[in-house]
Simulated assay, not measured.
Amino acid sequence: MPRADARAPFARTALALGLLVAAAGSAAATCPRPLYLTFDTGHMGVAPLVAEVLRRQDVRVTFFAANEATQQGDGSLGGAWAPWWRERAREGHDFASHTFDHVYWSADVAPARDGSPRFRVRASAGPHVGQTRLFSAAQYCEEIARSARRLEEITGQPALPLFRAPGGRTSPALLAAARACGYAHVGWAPAGFLGDELPSERYPNAELLAKALRDIRPGQILMAHLGIWSRKDPWAPAVLEPLIEGLKAKGFCFATLREHPEFAKWIAAHKDELPWSR
Protein backbone atom coordinates (compact mmCIF):
# COMPACT_ATOMS: atom_id res chain seq x y z
CA MET A 1 0.00 0.00 0.00
CA PRO A 2 2.69 2.62 0.79
CA ARG A 3 4.35 2.07 -2.58
CA ALA A 4 1.04 2.55 -4.43
CA ASP A 5 0.41 5.76 -2.51
CA ALA A 6 3.86 7.07 -3.42
CA ARG A 7 3.18 6.52 -7.12
CA ALA A 8 -0.26 8.13 -7.08
CA PRO A 9 0.87 11.75 -7.71
CA PHE A 10 2.97 10.61 -10.66
CA ALA A 11 0.09 8.62 -12.15
CA ARG A 12 -2.21 11.64 -11.85
CA THR A 13 0.39 13.83 -13.56
CA ALA A 14 0.85 11.34 -16.40
CA LEU A 15 -2.92 11.09 -16.89
CA ALA A 16 -3.29 14.88 -16.96
CA LEU A 17 -0.56 15.20 -19.56
CA GLY A 18 -2.07 12.42 -21.65
CA LEU A 19 -5.42 14.18 -21.75
CA LEU A 20 -3.81 17.51 -22.63
CA VAL A 21 -1.77 15.97 -25.44
CA ALA A 22 -4.88 14.33 -26.87
CA ALA A 23 -6.71 17.66 -26.73
CA ALA A 24 -3.89 19.31 -28.63
CA GLY A 25 -4.76 17.39 -31.79
CA SER A 26 -8.33 18.69 -31.88
CA ALA A 27 -7.24 22.22 -30.96
CA ALA A 28 -4.68 22.28 -33.76
CA ALA A 29 -7.38 21.41 -36.29
CA THR A 30 -9.21 24.65 -35.45
CA CYS A 31 -6.06 26.76 -35.87
CA PRO A 32 -5.06 26.54 -39.57
CA ARG A 33 -2.40 29.29 -39.42
CA PRO A 34 -0.89 28.82 -35.96
CA LEU A 35 1.81 30.82 -34.25
CA TYR A 36 3.50 29.84 -31.00
CA LEU A 37 4.15 32.89 -28.83
CA THR A 38 6.62 32.27 -26.01
CA PHE A 39 7.95 34.42 -23.17
CA ASP A 40 11.16 34.01 -21.22
CA THR A 41 11.40 35.49 -17.74
CA GLY A 42 13.17 38.78 -17.06
CA HIS A 43 12.79 41.51 -14.46
CA MET A 44 9.00 40.87 -14.44
CA GLY A 45 8.22 44.59 -14.45
CA VAL A 46 5.92 44.21 -17.46
CA ALA A 47 4.54 40.80 -16.45
CA PRO A 48 1.19 42.16 -15.16
CA LEU A 49 0.73 44.15 -18.38
CA VAL A 50 1.62 41.14 -20.53
CA ALA A 51 -0.91 39.03 -18.63
CA GLU A 52 -3.58 41.71 -19.11
CA VAL A 53 -3.01 41.81 -22.88
CA LEU A 54 -3.03 38.03 -23.22
CA ARG A 55 -6.25 37.80 -21.21
CA ARG A 56 -7.93 40.56 -23.22
CA GLN A 57 -6.84 39.03 -26.53
CA ASP A 58 -7.69 35.47 -25.41
CA VAL A 59 -4.21 34.23 -26.36
CA ARG A 60 -2.44 31.26 -24.73
CA VAL A 61 1.37 31.19 -24.65
CA THR A 62 4.24 29.11 -23.33
CA PHE A 63 6.36 30.65 -20.56
CA PHE A 64 10.00 29.58 -20.11
CA ALA A 65 10.94 30.34 -16.52
CA ALA A 66 14.19 30.87 -14.63
CA ASN A 67 14.54 32.34 -11.15
CA GLU A 68 15.88 35.68 -12.39
CA ALA A 69 16.33 38.89 -10.42
CA THR A 70 13.23 41.07 -10.51
CA GLN A 71 12.34 44.71 -10.03
CA GLN A 72 10.09 43.68 -7.14
CA GLY A 73 10.08 40.49 -5.12
CA ASP A 74 12.48 37.66 -4.43
CA GLY A 75 13.11 36.30 -7.92
CA SER A 76 10.81 35.43 -10.78
CA LEU A 77 10.15 31.97 -9.30
CA GLY A 78 10.10 33.21 -5.70
CA GLY A 79 7.15 33.41 -3.38
CA ALA A 80 6.26 36.98 -4.32
CA TRP A 81 5.54 35.97 -7.93
CA ALA A 82 3.89 32.62 -7.17
CA PRO A 83 0.33 34.04 -7.33
CA TRP A 84 1.09 35.48 -10.78
CA TRP A 85 2.18 32.07 -12.09
CA ARG A 86 -0.82 30.32 -10.54
CA GLU A 87 -3.18 32.73 -12.28
CA ARG A 88 -1.50 32.06 -15.64
CA ALA A 89 -2.00 28.32 -15.06
CA ARG A 90 -5.70 28.89 -14.41
CA GLU A 91 -5.90 30.80 -17.69
CA GLY A 92 -4.57 27.84 -19.66
CA HIS A 93 -0.98 28.85 -20.39
CA ASP A 94 1.85 26.34 -20.49
CA PHE A 95 5.23 26.37 -18.71
CA ALA A 96 8.73 25.02 -19.32
CA SER A 97 12.23 25.43 -17.94
CA HIS A 98 14.69 28.20 -18.79
CA THR A 99 17.18 26.64 -16.31
CA PHE A 100 16.81 27.69 -12.68
CA ASP A 101 19.71 30.12 -12.36
CA HIS A 102 19.56 31.30 -15.99
CA VAL A 103 22.70 29.34 -16.80
CA TYR A 104 24.39 30.20 -20.11
CA TRP A 105 26.30 27.51 -21.97
CA SER A 106 29.74 28.86 -22.94
CA ALA A 107 31.63 25.90 -24.41
CA ASP A 108 32.02 22.15 -24.48
CA VAL A 109 35.14 20.99 -22.62
CA ALA A 110 37.08 17.73 -22.51
CA PRO A 111 34.86 14.82 -21.41
CA ALA A 112 35.14 13.33 -17.95
CA ARG A 113 37.19 10.17 -17.43
CA ASP A 114 34.11 8.04 -18.05
CA GLY A 115 33.58 9.78 -21.39
CA SER A 116 30.51 11.77 -20.30
CA PRO A 117 30.24 15.31 -21.67
CA ARG A 118 31.11 18.42 -19.68
CA PHE A 119 30.28 22.04 -20.30
CA ARG A 120 31.58 25.45 -19.31
CA VAL A 121 28.64 27.52 -18.03
CA ARG A 122 27.98 30.90 -16.46
CA ALA A 123 24.90 31.83 -14.43
CA SER A 124 23.31 35.27 -14.53
CA ALA A 125 21.19 34.62 -11.42
CA GLY A 126 21.47 32.76 -8.14
CA PRO A 127 24.38 32.24 -5.73
CA HIS A 128 26.95 31.66 -8.51
CA VAL A 129 26.05 34.68 -10.63
CA GLY A 130 28.88 35.72 -12.91
CA GLN A 131 31.04 32.69 -12.08
CA THR A 132 32.39 30.36 -14.76
CA ARG A 133 31.93 26.72 -13.74
CA LEU A 134 32.15 23.23 -15.20
CA PHE A 135 28.94 21.20 -15.39
CA SER A 136 28.53 17.52 -16.08
CA ALA A 137 25.57 16.41 -18.17
CA ALA A 138 23.84 15.35 -14.95
CA GLN A 139 24.37 18.79 -13.40
CA TYR A 140 22.96 20.53 -16.45
CA CYS A 141 19.94 18.23 -16.44
CA GLU A 142 19.37 19.03 -12.77
CA GLU A 143 19.54 22.73 -13.58
CA ILE A 144 16.71 22.26 -16.09
CA ALA A 145 14.71 19.98 -13.81
CA ARG A 146 14.98 22.35 -10.84
CA SER A 147 13.01 25.03 -12.66
CA ALA A 148 10.46 22.49 -13.89
CA ARG A 149 9.92 21.21 -10.34
CA ARG A 150 9.48 24.73 -9.01
CA LEU A 151 6.92 25.55 -11.70
CA GLU A 152 4.91 22.47 -10.80
CA GLU A 153 5.21 23.27 -7.09
CA ILE A 154 3.81 26.76 -7.68
CA THR A 155 1.10 26.04 -10.23
CA GLY A 156 0.13 22.44 -9.54
CA GLN A 157 0.58 21.90 -13.28
CA PRO A 158 3.41 19.75 -14.68
CA ALA A 159 5.89 21.70 -16.75
CA LEU A 160 6.31 20.53 -20.33
CA PRO A 161 9.36 18.28 -20.94
CA LEU A 162 10.92 21.14 -22.90
CA PHE A 163 13.52 23.79 -22.11
CA ARG A 164 15.08 26.89 -23.60
CA ALA A 165 18.75 27.57 -22.99
CA PRO A 166 19.42 31.18 -21.96
CA GLY A 167 20.39 33.21 -24.99
CA GLY A 168 19.57 30.17 -27.11
CA ARG A 169 23.20 29.11 -26.61
CA THR A 170 23.70 25.39 -27.06
CA SER A 171 25.93 22.78 -28.66
CA PRO A 172 25.06 19.40 -30.18
CA ALA A 173 26.54 17.73 -27.09
CA LEU A 174 24.43 19.87 -24.74
CA LEU A 175 21.24 19.19 -26.70
CA ALA A 176 21.97 15.46 -26.72
CA ALA A 177 22.57 15.47 -22.96
CA ALA A 178 19.28 17.28 -22.33
CA ARG A 179 17.32 14.96 -24.59
CA ALA A 180 18.84 11.96 -22.84
CA CYS A 181 17.28 13.15 -19.57
CA GLY A 182 13.91 13.94 -21.15
CA TYR A 183 14.06 17.56 -22.33
CA ALA A 184 13.83 18.84 -25.91
CA HIS A 185 15.19 22.29 -26.66
CA VAL A 186 12.96 25.03 -28.06
CA GLY A 187 14.48 27.86 -30.07
CA TRP A 188 12.62 30.41 -32.18
CA ALA A 189 12.28 31.40 -35.82
CA PRO A 190 14.52 34.24 -37.10
CA ALA A 191 11.38 36.31 -37.76
CA GLY A 192 10.09 35.24 -34.35
CA PHE A 193 12.88 37.12 -32.57
CA LEU A 194 10.66 40.05 -31.58
CA GLY A 195 13.56 42.31 -30.59
CA ASP A 196 12.50 43.33 -27.11
CA GLU A 197 16.07 42.88 -25.80
CA LEU A 198 17.59 45.18 -28.41
CA PRO A 199 18.45 48.83 -27.53
CA SER A 200 15.39 50.99 -28.12
CA GLU A 201 17.59 53.86 -29.34
CA ARG A 202 18.50 51.81 -32.42
CA TYR A 203 15.42 49.58 -32.66
CA PRO A 204 12.32 51.62 -31.78
CA ASN A 205 9.06 49.86 -31.01
CA ALA A 206 7.37 51.01 -34.23
CA GLU A 207 10.17 49.49 -36.31
CA LEU A 208 10.06 46.19 -34.43
CA LEU A 209 6.29 45.99 -34.86
CA ALA A 210 6.44 46.66 -38.59
CA LYS A 211 9.18 44.08 -39.09
CA ALA A 212 7.31 41.38 -37.19
CA LEU A 213 4.05 41.98 -39.05
CA ARG A 214 5.92 41.86 -42.37
CA ASP A 215 8.09 38.78 -41.78
CA ILE A 216 6.23 36.33 -39.51
CA ARG A 217 4.91 33.21 -41.23
CA PRO A 218 2.55 30.40 -40.11
CA GLY A 219 3.97 27.74 -37.82
CA GLN A 220 6.74 29.89 -36.38
CA ILE A 221 7.79 30.15 -32.74
CA LEU A 222 7.95 33.74 -31.46
CA MET A 223 10.01 34.88 -28.47
CA ALA A 224 9.87 37.86 -26.11
CA HIS A 225 10.59 38.50 -22.41
CA LEU A 226 8.82 39.55 -19.24
CA GLY A 227 11.07 42.58 -18.90
CA ILE A 228 14.53 43.53 -20.17
CA TRP A 229 16.72 45.63 -17.88
CA SER A 230 18.67 47.38 -20.62
CA ARG A 231 15.85 48.52 -22.91
CA LYS A 232 14.85 52.09 -22.07
CA ASP A 233 11.55 52.12 -24.01
CA PRO A 234 9.85 48.85 -23.01
CA TRP A 235 8.62 46.61 -25.83
CA ALA A 236 5.69 45.37 -23.78
CA PRO A 237 2.95 46.33 -23.76
CA ALA A 238 3.57 48.93 -26.50
CA VAL A 239 4.18 46.35 -29.24
CA LEU A 240 2.51 43.25 -27.83
CA GLU A 241 -1.15 44.10 -28.29
CA PRO A 242 -0.79 45.80 -31.72
CA LEU A 243 1.26 42.79 -32.82
CA ILE A 244 -1.35 40.26 -31.70
CA GLU A 245 -4.15 42.30 -33.28
CA GLY A 246 -2.22 42.73 -36.50
CA LEU A 247 -1.39 39.03 -36.74
CA LYS A 248 -5.01 38.08 -36.05
CA ALA A 249 -6.09 40.44 -38.85
CA LYS A 250 -3.79 38.50 -41.19
CA GLY A 251 -5.53 35.24 -40.31
CA PHE A 252 -3.08 33.94 -37.71
CA CYS A 253 -4.11 32.17 -34.51
CA PHE A 254 -2.15 31.30 -31.36
CA ALA A 255 -1.41 28.04 -29.62
CA THR A 256 0.96 26.77 -26.94
CA LEU A 257 3.88 24.48 -27.70
CA ARG A 258 1.96 21.41 -26.59
CA GLU A 259 0.08 21.87 -29.89
CA HIS A 260 3.22 22.33 -32.01
CA PRO A 261 3.53 19.32 -34.38
CA GLU A 262 7.11 18.52 -33.40
CA PHE A 263 6.82 19.09 -29.67
CA ALA A 264 3.39 17.49 -29.27
CA LYS A 265 4.99 14.23 -30.40
CA TRP A 266 7.85 14.67 -27.92
CA ILE A 267 5.44 15.35 -25.06
CA ALA A 268 3.37 12.29 -25.98
CA ALA A 269 6.48 10.12 -26.10
CA HIS A 270 7.83 11.37 -22.75
CA LYS A 271 4.70 12.01 -20.71
CA ASP A 272 5.22 8.87 -18.60
CA GLU A 273 8.87 9.61 -17.83
CA LEU A 274 8.07 12.60 -15.64
CA PRO A 275 11.52 14.23 -15.91
CA TRP A 276 10.25 17.31 -14.05
CA SER A 277 9.42 15.17 -10.99
CA ARG A 278 12.79 13.49 -10.51
Rank of each mutant, 00 (worst) to 15 (best):
Y36F: 15
L37R: 01
L37E: 00
L37Y: 00
T38Y: 01
T38H: 02
F39M: 11
F39D: 02
F39A: 05
T41G: 13
T41C: 12
G42Q: 07
H43D: 15
H43S: 14
P48N: 11
P48S: 10
A51P: 03
E52G: 10
E52V: 07
E52P: 06
V53F: 09
L54W: 00
L54V: 00
R55H: 06
D58A: 15
D58F: 08
D58Y: 11
F64T: 01
F64K: 02
Q72K: 14
D74K: 01
D74A: 09
G75Q: 03
G75V: 02
L77H: 02
G78A: 10
G79D: 14
G79K: 09
W81L: 11
A82W: 06
W84H: 14
W84Y: 15
R86Y: 06
E87W: 02
E87D: 14
A89P: 07
F95Q: 00
T99K: 07
T99G: 03
T99F: 01
D101R: 12
Y104H: 13
W105F: 15
A107M: 06
A107Q: 13
D108M: 11
A110M: 12
P111V: 13
A112C: 11
G115D: 04
P117N: 09
P117L: 05
R118W: 09
F119M: 07
V121S: 01
V121Q: 00
R122C: 14
A123S: 13
G126E: 04
P127N: 06
H128P: 03
H128M: 11
G130F: 03
G130L: 05
R133W: 08
R133Q: 14
S136W: 08
Q139M: 10
C141D: 06
E142A: 15
E142F: 08
E143K: 15
I144D: 00
R146V: 05
S147K: 06
A148C: 12
R150V: 05
R150D: 02
R150Q: 13
L151T: 03
E152A: 14
